[in-house]
Nucleic acid binder design. Structure first.
Lengths: 227, 227
DNA sequence: ATTAAAATATGAAATAGATCAGATATTAAA
DNA sequence: TTTAATATCTGATCTATTTCATATTTTAAT
């Protein structure tokens, strides 16, 4: 876990960063950029939430911890901000977050972040609420998928989710274990393995050199529909 | 479905309402109070979201619609605001909402609401984010319950949720059908009926004259824990 | 008040999915 | 490189839960 002061950062996509010179100054002094290795944890469920995290690069899994098995709520991609819910008041993290590959985040004190947000409340509100709507929409979709569909439909949904919402391609580096896939679909490891293999055997997806390729989007969507 | 102009409204608990005289004036002109009967629908999944709703009285179920069975995401209680996610930008409702008993809401145009929020951005942000944190927390808990636990644990969780988060009492008017209970726990009607009856037979809860009484909170919690 | 419709109840059969057990392959460690 | 550990794979058994069938009770409608 390496850390760098944010002064030298010139990240154009960072929404807090793009608020003029004075904001830039404030941020520089109060933000660090941190590098994470594979499987390293960003923050842990139940701990006090003191900072916000802007994901510069890499993908993190957001999950609830359980004694034996976790439940992956979503995969956060670059340019997402984590921890917004705890901006006001003393709050604890509702979930854990850890990197599935390597990555980099900007860590900002929540008071500083709140202060900057309120410099431009209209945009801030809009930014937050829009991210929130998207996030809520995704969570509800996954909620529905996991509670209403059976194994094949759930796995199809998970792959579609990764393709459409997370990696935004029908061909992407696949950094997950079968266990991750199981925790994403709320099924046993064995079932995840079996059905994922089925999908490969049936020519729906292929996995070569850890690159997942969706061969038949139509079939995948149909499996998702029939549940 | 009856409607009254909000001028005469003197609701102290409404957070938008309590912003001074000019705000009061604006609201009066742009808000209506609407009465709903049992099972009437407040808004429907997929429709454009044009207004926000402040629940004055009554309980609404927030649910995703499916061909055969719905999934109840949560029960909204009085003083909650629905529709905040769609404040900025053109958005559609992610879920349907309908009253489980009779109730009353204040319906406010979202542009007016946004305008009022920005009059006092700090409080607004805090209000919204806090409601959001609570809502997210509840949804994630239910998400975990429904995907990780089996029938008895799920029903116990649902009853605990109703008791602790919604009705805030261990004895409350129970306006649900067994079907509602099934949609709240994501199980078949028959299973909901069987296990709910079991809980009654085992002296864990009682249901007389449509009043649910939690007889053994300890047992209910233990069932929730062991899943 | 009578009938129809819907909700609740309960057991038996069917089945989706988990668990178990054992084999092979891949990765990490010594 | 060899060994150990972990991940993937696959079939067989077991079990939780759904589905089906049918009875009873409650609610709504005429």
């Amino acid at each position: 876990m390496t850390a760098n002061i944010c002064v030298s950062c010139d990240n154009k996509s960072c929404p807090v960063f793009n608020q003029g010179k004075e904001a830039k100054e404030i941020i520089s002094k109060n933000t660090v950029r941190i590098g994470f290795k594979k499987d390293e944890m960003l923050f842990k469920q139940g701990a006090f939430s003191t900072h916000l995290y802007y994901i510069n690069s890499g993908y993190t899994k957001i999950y609830k911890e359980f004694p034996s098995k976790n439940l992956i709520l979503k995969i956060a991609n670059p340019e997402m901000i984590l921890g917004t819910a705890s901006l006001f008041g003393t709050k604890t993290h509702l979930y854990s977050a850890s990197f599935i590959g390597k990555g980099e985040v900007c860590q900002i004190d929540r008071n500083i972040f709140a202060q900057l947000l309120l410099k431009n409340p209209e945009n801030s509100l809009e930014l937050l609420l829009n991210q929130l709507y998207k996030s809520e929409s995704e969570v509800f979709s996954r909620f529905a998928s996991l509670t209403q569909k059976q194994l094949h439909g759930r796995l199809a949904d998970a792959i579609l989710y990764l393709s459409m919402e997370v990696f935004k391609s029908d061909r992407f580096e696949f950094p997950f274990t079968r266990r991750d896939l199981a925790e994403l679909t709320s099924m046993s490891n064995e079932s995840a393995i079996k059905i994922f293999k089925e999908f490969q055997n049936d020519g729906i997806v292929s996995l070569e050199n850890n690159v997942l390729h969706i061969l038949s989007l139509d079939l995948l969507k149909r499996i998702s529909e029939i549940g």
